[in-house]
Design a protein around this nucleic acid. Structure first.
Lengths: 212, 212
DNA sequence: GTCTATATGCCGATAGAC
DNA sequence: GTCTATCGGCATATAGAC
C-alpha cells in the first residue's frame, strides 16, 4: 500500500463517483470510503476537492487529446501529400474514433468518458474553464481541419456546426450505456462501439456537408 | 405580498439558480435570499428541495410540450390531408421552433431553457427520471413523425439519430448565451434565434436524411 | 401564510500523534 | 504517508409563535 497505490485508488474512485453523481453531488467521504483510504489522504495528495477533480481529468484527457491530435495530423498530412483537401468524414473520425476506442481501453475509462460528456454542460465555472483550457488546442485543430475540408462554408456557420457536433457527441457519451432504457418501443439499441461510431459519423458528416 | 406572489418569486429565483449552479450546487438559502422570502417558505409551499425543482420544471415544461405537440400534430395533419409523408425539416422545426420561440417569450424562460438543456445529462437519477417522464409523450410523437417522414430508415438507426439530435439541441440551448466566449478566432457567433434555428435545422435535417 | 429559532447531520479542511 | 479527532460552517427540514 505505497503512496502511489493510494493516490491511484483515490483517482479511480473519484472518477467513478464524479461521473455518476456529479461534482457537487459527490462527497470526499464517499470517495475515500470506496477507495479504502482515509479522508485526510485526499487533501494530503491533492490539496482540495477541486484539484482532485482536475487530476482526475488530466490523467486521462492528456493522452486522449494527444491521440486525437495525432490522428488529426495524420489526416491532414495525407491530404497534403495528395494535394487535396481532407475529407470531412476522415476528419471527424480522427476526433471521434480515439474517444470511443479509449472507452474500452482500460477499466474506468467508461466512467471518464461519461465525465467528459458532462463536463461540456457542467454548471460549475471553475471546472468548465479548466476543462475548456485542456480542450482548446485539439478543438482548434479540429476546427481548422474542418475549415480545410469545407472551404466554401462560412466560418461562423462552421463554428455553430462544430457546437452541434460536440453536443451530439457528448450527449451520446453520457447515454451510451443507458440509452436502451429510453427506447420508445422495445428497441434494441445495439450500442457496440463500431456500429455507434458509424452511425454517429453518418449523421455528423451529412450535417457538416449540408448545403441548404 | 400574498401567497401566490411569494410562491412565484421562489419559483423564479429557483429557476435562475438551478440553471446557473445546478441542483446540488444551489442551496435553498440562496434561493430564498434572492426571492426575498423566508427559508421556511420553501418547505411550506413545495415540501422539499426536490419537489421545488419539479415545480420549476413543470411550470414551463407543460405549456412548452403542449405547444410542441400541437405543432407536430399540425405537420402530421397537413401531410395526411395531402396524402404524402411529412417532410423531415418540417417535423424537426415543429419540435425545435417552440423551444427557441419560448426563450424570448417571458423573463426567466432563458434560464429555464438552459435548465432543460442540462436536465438531459443531469447526474441526479430522481430528477432525470422525473424529466424523462414529462418528455416521453412528445418525444414519442416526434419519433413517430420522423419515422413517417423517413420510412426507409431502420428504427434502430432513427433511435440513435434522435439521440444525436437531442444532444445537439440541448448542448446548443446550454451554450446559446455564452458560445461567443469559446469562439476560436474572434468569430462573431451571431446568436439571434432565427438564424440559429435555421443553422440547427440545416444541420439536423441533413443528418437525419443521410443515406450513407 | 409568514416568521424566528433550532434540530440534526454532513460537508471540506486541518492539526497533530504515530 | 497515514491515521484519529475535530473545527467551523452550511445544508435541509421542522416546530411553534404570531
Amino acid at each position: 500500500m505505497s503512496e502511489q497505490d493510494t493516490k491511484e485508488r483515490i483517482l479511480d474512485a473519484a472518477e467513478q463517483r464524479f461521473a455518476r453523481d456529479g461534482f457537487h453531488g459527490t462527497s470526499l467521504r464517499a470517495i475515500t470510503a470506496e477507495a479504502g483510504a482515509n479522508l485526510a489522504a485526499v487533501n494530503y495528495h491533492f490539496g482540495s476537492k477541486e484539484t482532485l477533480m482536475a487530476a482526475v481529468i488530466d490523467r486521462r484527457l492528456a493522452p486522449l487529446n494527444r491521440r486525437r491530435s495525432e490522428c488529426l495530423e495524420a489526416v491532414a498530412a495525407a491530404a497534403r501529400k495528395e494535394n487535396r483537401p481532407p475529407d470531412v468524414r476522415g476528419v471527424l473520425r480522427a476526433f471521434i474514433q480515439p474517444t470511443l476506442d479509449f472507452r474500452g481501453s482500460c477499466p474506468g475509462a467508461e466512467a471518464f468518458v461519461t465525465l467528459v460528456g458532462r463536463a461540456l454542460v457542467q454548471p460549475d465555472d471553475t471546472l468548465r474553464v479548466f476543462f475548456q483550457k485542456r480542450m482548446e488546442p485539439v478543438v482548434t485543430r479540429l476546427f481548422e481541419s474542418l475549415a480545410a475540408a469545407l472551404p466554401a462554408l462560412p466560418r461562423q456557420v462552421l463554428f455553430w456546426r462544430l457546437h452541434f457536433m460536440l453536443g451530439a457527441m457528448s450527449h451520446t457519451l453520457c447515454w451510451i450505456d443507458r440509452a436502451g432504457r429510453a427506447a420508445p418501443a422495445g428497441l434494441e439499441p445495439s450500442a457496440d462501439a463500431e456500429t455507434l461510431s458509424d452511425l454517429l459519423l453518418d449523421f455528423l458528416t451529412a450535417g457538416m456537408e449540408s448545403t441548404s
